[in-house]
Amino acid sequence: METSQEHLPVSEATFLILLSLAQESRHGYAIMKDVEALSQGRVSLSTGTLYGALSRLLDQRWIERVEDELPEQSSRTRKRYRLSEQGRHVLQAESQRLEQLAAMARLRLAENLS
């Protein structure tokens, strides 16, 4: 049985994409914009990088694809992505890992100052 810990650490782009989908499902462009906003403009994904990452995350089953019918163009669908249960576990595990690291760093820095 695979555990979330086995997949850690995840890359920053992956973490931000998962984080972007944590609240709600989004389509590709919304993810791109949200990742940029979450990283305060530091991470700007290209379309190719974004879809490469989405493809990998779909393969790993960390995210799922849902299709929205477009009412005005009934033959076309717009794809949205949402976090799967497994993806949520990975995101939680990675957040905890980062928190522990940050706490450790703060502790060491405080020890150094005193």
Partner: peptide, 10 residues
């Protein structure tokens, strides 16, 4: 700029 890396990844 991202094209070669993303094609490689794909």
């Amino acid at each position: 700029a991202a094209l070669p890396a993303s094609i490689n990844q794909a």
